[in-house]
Computed example of a mutant assay.
Amino acid sequence: MSTATAPARSHRRPGGGPLRRHAGALLGLAAWATGLFFFLPVAWMVLTSFHSEPDAATNPPAITAHLTLDGYREFFGTSTGTSPWPALANSATAAVASTALVLALAIPAAYALSIKPVRKWSDVLFFFLSTKMLPAVAGLLPIYLAAKNIGLLDNIWLMTVLYTAMNLPIAVWMMRSFLAEIPVSILEAAAIDGAGLLTVFRKIITPIAAPGIAATSLICFIFSWNEMLFARVLTGIRSTTAPVFLTGFVTSQGLFLAQVCAAAVAVSLPVLIAGFAAQDRLVQGLSLGAVK
């Protein structure tokens, strides 16, 4: 009579072996080291902005040097008479207005390409993506000549239209991926109850896709706020933007490092504040659809 031998059971701890735990710890340390590697230049810029120009120009830099607000005083024009507020207002106007226009155009387009797909919708998406393949400098001269002929040079609304056109393709791609995650059954139930398209947008699509809308709007705002190539060529005195204003600190007398760092910190604050304000929505939007 043969006896069946039961297979031996392996008793493994849920946490894995020592090798796996050490690998997890090493990955954690690597993540922290990578984060510090990218954070240190920012921290160094902030610290340098509170130094005087002689201390900021020393080599090696003086970490324990006396802290001062002279760089910020220079930036805000209390000693030079050059105020950054018009440039900051122009950047805010162009960034906010273009982001609003992008969302107003991208959400209906993404709805047509995801929830109510049109014929050859993949070709439409490829067309949107192909508009980003042309280098920006290649279209600079035609845009400059067109703006000159119609009298729109040094006009902030021209920059608003350009930023809208530049950010619209990526916004359509992002919003389509977000709207594609909305269950069609919810929309069909709303249609059976007699809800119109505007009601569906206002009460169903917008609340569900709010994280994606926040992520898209923040990215478009950052791209518009940081753009400098077209602003440098197409704007002048009245419509200069904040990135162009920063270049004014590089003069024939040299690079004023403390002033540049103070200006960079001040110009970066609106983007940082917007990012922290929309942090929860941004994380939800960027991870939307990642886990089924």
Rank of each mutant, 00 (worst) to 15 (best):
R13W: 03
L27K: 09
T34P: 01
R13T: 04
E53K: 03
L19K: 11
L36R: 05
P60A: 01
R13S: 07
R20P: 03
S49A: 15
R13L: 03
P54Q: 08
V42Y: 06
R9N: 02
L40E: 01
N59H: 12
S49R: 07
R21T: 04
A23T: 10
A31M: 12
P41G: 08
P54E: 01
S52G: 13
L19Q: 11
L19T: 10
P14A: 01
G28R: 14
L40K: 04
W44V: 12
G16K: 04
G24Q: 14
A30I: 11
L36I: 09
T48S: 12
P14F: 01
V42K: 07
S49H: 05
R9L: 07
R12E: 11
L47E: 08
L36Q: 03
W44T: 06
A56D: 02
S10A: 11
G17R: 00
A23I: 07
N59G: 09
L19G: 14
V46L: 15
V42G: 02
P54M: 06
W44I: 10
R20G: 13
G24A: 14
P60R: 00
L26M: 14
L40W: 08
T34E: 08
R9E: 09
G16R: 06
F37T: 07
P54Y: 05
S49P: 04
W32H: 10
V46F: 10
S52M: 04
H51P: 01
A56W: 04
T34Y: 11
T58G: 12
G28S: 13
G24I: 04
F50E: 02
A56K: 04
F37S: 07
R9G: 03
A31N: 12
R12V: 05
G24H: 13
A57I: 02
V42Q: 06
G17W: 01
G28V: 06
G28N: 12
T58Y: 10
S52W: 08
P60G: 02
T34V: 14
H51M: 14
G16C: 03
T48L: 09
G28D: 13
S10H: 05
T34S: 15
L19P: 00
P60V: 03
S52N: 09
G16W: 05
H51W: 09
H22E: 09
A25Q: 12
F37G: 06
R21F: 01
A23G: 09
A25N: 08
W44D: 04
F37Y: 15
S10C: 02
L47D: 11
G16I: 00
A57Q: 13
F38V: 14
S49I: 05
R20K: 08
H51S: 12
L27V: 07
